[in-house]
Design a protein around this nucleic acid. Structure first.
Length: 370
DNA sequence: CAAACGTGGAT
DNA sequence: TATCCAAGTTT
């Protein structure tokens, strides 16, 4: 007969759900016990939470919901209003897909989100994880919502040796085996809460984990070595010039980026191309208008997911009758906070003008966890 | 299937 | 300062 320490036991959902009932996080988009979840709010939160921390999402979620309280109001809104509400959150294709999804729900589903994974999966911006999460959380359907938390928890429970992302199908299959018939929605949220507060990437709190007993990695003392990952290399530095034009009537020259690609649909000051071998000394040929350009000392640094960026800022002042070049426009300085300016461009404005982002997002609800 | 796609907090 | 990481999706 095997000794208890060596016998791998299947993780019991009851143990996790009992822990969840006592320690569940109280989050703005989460229904209280007994309340019915609102699919619109669940969906909105899930999109915002993609690759984004709880602390970063909270203020955006509150403001967004205030501005677009229903899927109908979101569907009817102009695209630039949606992009503006998303500005600063990152991954802006999410905002474009969010808007398209709201329209699809209103036009093709009578304003009600479908409740099955298969139907949800057809909507823009909803992939395998989000389809399962919305089906489980908003409709209490049995679905395996596998996010980064679940990958970590499950890879430790079963000591999955295959590194991510190749391990995804393995982890998905293992997760499907432990999703219970009863309370699948709470189970999905419970595993994520466990990953966020107990089964953390570094120094997991195994001693107080409801699944310590069945955890194979813990039994081997190797919990921090899972999940295995193949590491990705950081991109090459790109450089460019950004042009801040201050007109005498106190307005700034802006343009909207094309809808696809990096910062798609977002607003920016005119810039040169961003290239590894860009020479700021020759930036004048890229300037949007003729003027007495002043090169500002220092650079603006910004890090995107796949490359770091270094922008040299040029500043010019022009008379108040200066026309905007093709595809550009003037925005009064005091209205800049209403523009869909990404973080990199806000840095440029601060560098050039000393300040700018008037209503700075909101306080940072510290603590991604607990 | 690998790469593109933002941002800020934690260590 | 450097690196990692956070409720992924699309192409």
């Amino acid at each position: 007969m095997l000794t208890p320490a060596l016998r791998a036991t299947k993780p019991r959902s009851d143990d996790l759900l009992a822990w969840y009932d006592r320690h569940r996080r109280d989050l703005p988009w989460r229904a209280r016990p007994g309340e019915t979840a609102d699919p619109y709010r669940v969906w909105l939160s899930e999109i915002m939470l993609q690759q984004t921390t709880v602390g970063a999402v909270k203020p955006f979620y509150e403001r967004f919901l205030e501005r677009f309280p229903t899927v109908e109001s979101l569907a009817e809104a102009p695209a630039d209003a949606v992009m503006q509400a998303w500005a600063g959150l990152g991954y802006y294709s999410r905002a474009r897909n969010l808007h398209a999804c709201a329209k699809a729900v209103v036009e093709n589903h009578d304003g009600r989100f479908p409740g099955t994974e298969a139907e949800l999966l057809k909507l823009p911006g909803i992939g395998a994880y989000t389809a399962a999460a919305v089906a489980a959380i908003a409709f209490d359907r049995k679905a395996a919502a596998v996010d980064g938390n679940v990958e970590r928890v499950v890879s430790r429970l079963f000591m999955v040796e295959e590194p991510l992302p190749k391990a995804k199908p393995i982890i998905r299959a293992l997760t499907e085996e432990i999703v219970p018939e009863d309370r699948p929605g709470d189970f999905a949220q419970a595993v994520m809460d466990l990953g966020a507060t107990i089964c953390t990437p570094k120094r997991p709190a195994c001693a107080i984990c409801p699944w310590m007993q069945p955890c194979q990695a813990r039994a081997a003392g190797l919990q921090e070595t899972f999940p295995k990952k193949q590491k990705k290399e950081t991109g090459q530095l790109r450089k460019g010039a950004a042009f801040v034009v201050l007109r005498a009537d106190d307005s700034i020259l802006l343009r909207t980026r094309p809808p696809q690609g990096l910062l798609g649909g977002m607003v920016e000051m005119p810039t040169s191309a961003w290239e590894p071998d860009y020479e700021p000394a020759r930036a004048m040929v890229d300037a949007p208008i003729e003027a007495r350009w002043k090169r500002l000392p220092g650079v603006v640094r910004h890090v995107f997911t796949h490359f770091p960026l270094e922008l040299t800022v040029f500043l010019a002042k022009v008379p108040k009758d200066e026309p905007a070049p093709e595809d550009m426009r003037w925005t009064p300085r005091h209205q800049l906070h209403e523009e869909a300016l990404p973080g990199a461009m806000k840095k440029v404005l601060v560098h050039a003008l000393g300040d700018m982002p008037a209503p700075k997002a909101a306080p940072k609800a510290k603590k991604a966890n607990a």
